[in-house]
Each structure stands twice: as structure tokens, then as C-alpha cells.
Computed example of a mutant assay.
Amino acid sequence: MNLRLTSLFSAALLALLCAGTAQAAETTPAAQLQRWSAQAGASGNAAKGQTFFNAKHGGEWSCASCHGTPPTAQGQHANTGKVIAPLAPAFNAKAFTDSAKVDKWFKRNCNDVLTRECSAAEKADVLAYLNNLK
């Protein structure tokens, strides 16, 4: 194989690997709920999720502080004013469809609201609540 053909083959292989990685991250809100429920060892509870979402947990903010009540319309970050897309999957087709983003934002937002990472059960409950909003 000559050097040019080897380079083209390597580039094509890298593109396929990257495409496979990107697709592996794609998911559905229902699959996210299933993932966190499995980790929690119990199904998400929408009523608990709604209570958790709207409550302040010893800090100044709740989830609803930025995402609204219910989170079916655009929200606004309480500190920066940045516009936030609707969080409920029925009102935002992209919500909870990328596992890496789900993990990133749960970690970041739970730290803002709770000053700790959310448990798998808390994530499952919030997702059950959000997935039930129509």
C-alpha cells in the first residue's frame, strides 16, 4: 500500500470510529430514565421528582429557579440570565438525547442546587417527572 492510500484508509477508519462514538452517545429520554432507575435499583417516581425539582435544598436555588415551573417553556439562568431551552422532553426534542450532555448537566446543576452530585434515585425521579410532562 502506498503512503497516500494508507493515509486515506486511516482517515476513513478514524471517521467511522468517531461516527460510531457519536452515535453511541445518542439515546432517548426513556432510556435515560431506565438507566438511572437501574442504577438506583428502583423506578423513578414522578411525584418525588416534581417535589425535588421545585424544592430548595438548603441553598438559594431549586431546579425550577432556572428551568421554570413546569419546565415546559424557555427558562433563564438565575445568575447569568442565559436563555435555557425547555427541559421537558415533550417540549424539546433534544432534551436527554445525549448521554454525555445528560451526565455533564446533571453533575453541574446538582452541584449548583445541592452542593453535591445527585443520587441515581434523584436523577430517576426528576426524569420520571420531566418525561410525564405533556
Rank of each mutant, 00 (worst) to 15 (best):
Q76P: 03
N79D: 03
S65W: 04
A73M: 11
T80I: 05
A64G: 06
K94L: 09
A93E: 12
A100W: 01
A64T: 03
S62P: 09
A90E: 03
V102M: 13
A93W: 02
A64C: 02
A64P: 02
S62D: 14
C66H: 01
A73V: 03
Q74F: 08
H67I: 02
H67E: 03
W61F: 15
A73G: 11
A85P: 07
F91Q: 14
P86Y: 02
S62K: 15
E60I: 13
A93S: 15
P86I: 01
A64N: 06
T80N: 04
F91S: 14
C63H: 13
G68Y: 01
H77F: 05
C63F: 06
G81P: 03
A78W: 04
G75N: 10
V102G: 08
W61L: 12
E60G: 07
A88V: 01
G75V: 05
A85D: 14
T69M: 05
A78K: 09
F96E: 09
A78I: 03
A88I: 02
Q76W: 00
E60D: 15
P89K: 09
P70V: 10
T80K: 14
F91P: 04
F96W: 15
F96I: 11
A100I: 07
H67N: 07
W61Q: 10
S65R: 10
C63T: 14
A88C: 03
H77A: 08
A64K: 04
V102W: 01
A73H: 08
N79P: 00
A93T: 13
L87V: 13
K101H: 12
A90Y: 00
T80F: 03
A90D: 00
V83C: 07
A100M: 05
C63R: 08
T97L: 13
A73F: 02
A93Q: 15
S99W: 01
A85L: 09
E60F: 12
A95E: 04
K94S: 10
A73P: 00
L87Q: 12
A85R: 13
N79L: 13
W61M: 07
K101R: 14
F96C: 11
D98S: 12
A78Q: 08
F96Y: 15
P86N: 08
P89V: 05
T69P: 00
W61H: 14
S62Q: 10
N79G: 02
G68A: 02
A95K: 12
E60C: 04
K94Q: 14
Q76M: 11
A100R: 11
K101I: 04
V102Y: 05
S62I: 11
G75T: 09
A90L: 02
G81I: 05
S62C: 09
A88W: 00
